[in-house]
């Protein structure tokens, strides 16, 4: 499902114009992004939990240069699907 399809469906459900819906989704996304950027985690009921995690330094081998490299630490987003979502989608077979 593309972003436009999502907006179309959502605007239908909510009886709102597409522009309005898009604005709402964008605002939601920027709020969520900000929360994650500040290191907060949050749970959206029926969807799941979003949080950030700091990945420690990694030492990896670069086969091209034949040398070891240190990959700096990184903060990444983690998502854990909620129980309902997980169970509901466990056995379906999307085309």
């Amino acid at each position: 499902m593309t972003y436009t399809e999502l907006i179309d469906q959502l605007s239908e459900e909510l009886n709102l114009s597409k522009t309005e819906t898009k604005y709402l989704v964008d605002e939601l996304v920027s709020e969520l992004t900000e929360q994650l950027g500040q290191g907060y985690s949050f749970t959206i009921p029926d969807l799941g939990t979003f949080k950030t995690k700091i990945k420690d330094v990694q030492k990896v081998y670069n086969p091209h240069h034949e040398k070891f490299m240190l990959i700096p630490p990184k903060r990444v987003v983690e998502f854990h699907p909620g129980k309902n979502l997980k169970e509901n989608l466990k056995h379906i077979n999307p085309q």
Partner: peptide, 29 residues
């Protein structure tokens, strides 16, 4: 609004196996 959005994400995953939200990310099965 969020409840509806979550519902649509779930149906989207059910029907096509992926839902993308611009500027945020993509949910995938």
């Amino acid at each position: 609004f969020i409840r509806e959005l979550v519902g649509i994400i779930e149906t989207g995953l059910r029907s096509s196996g992926s839902v993308s939200i611009s500027g945020f990310g993509k949910f995938e099965l």
